[in-house]
């Protein structure tokens, strides 16, 4: 019995030392999680999530203080990726599959260039007194332009699916 107790104790001590040494030697510096989460976000710092910028939102996500559905411009796609990275399950039913993009209603635009100045990606083209135009490929749907437009000429509209963006739906689950 002494032999049994002694040998198991010795084993425990040795393994504990090995683990302690490994914890020191193989330590990972910094928190790569925040960097990874920030890379998944659109990086336009629009503020719709309630945080000052995308970096701050990433930090809050890493601390599990914010839901993965926090980013409207990112939509379902970003929420899904965040959920995957954080290893959480999330109810994404409230989010839309279709992104919302800004659009200028030409009859209301007065060409004041206020929107072009606040757009984080320079997606709005327009010279003073000329009707402005949104480059849909560069628009993230952050909504900054909507807030500053004095004539409410800007709207966020859902992208209409076209043949180019259409995808075969998933087959319905099989029987049993």
């Amino acid at each position: 019995m002494i032999l049994a107790i002694g040998s198991v104790t010795l084993l425990g001590v040795v393994l504990g030392l090995v683990l302690g040494y490994a914890a020191q030697k193989l330590r990972v510096e910094g928190d790569p999680l925040v960097d990874e989460l920030a890379a998944l976000l659109p990086a336009s710092n629009c503020g719709q999530c309630g945080f000052a910028g995308c970096r701050q939102a990433a930090e809050a996500l890493a601390r599990h203080e914010a839901p993965v559905t926090l980013c409207p411009p990112g939509g379902k796609a970003v929420a899904q990726k965040l959920a995957e990275r954080l290893g959480v399950s999330a109810d994404l039913s409230g989010m839309s599959d279709r992104p919302k993009l800004a659009d200028v209603r030409e009859e209301l635009c007065i060409g004041c260039t206020k929107c072009a100045k606040v757009c984080p990606t320079d997606a709005i083209l327009g010279a003073p007194k000329m009707i402005h135009y949104v480059l849909s490929d560069a628009c993230t749907g952050c909504g900054a332009c909507i807030d500053v437009c004095p004539t409410e000429a800007l709207l966020l509209e859902e992208v209409v699916p076209s043949i180019r963006t259409w995808v075969w739906p998933k087959p319905v689950a099989e029987a049993a």
Binding site: N45, A77, A138
Partner: peptide, 16 residues
């Protein structure tokens, strides 16, 4: 396509 677009948007934001 989305990832490519996101990378371009990030580049645009940085450029701005």
């Amino acid at each position: 396509a989305r990832e490519r677009q996101a990378a371009e948007i990030r580049a645009l934001t940085e450029a701005k």
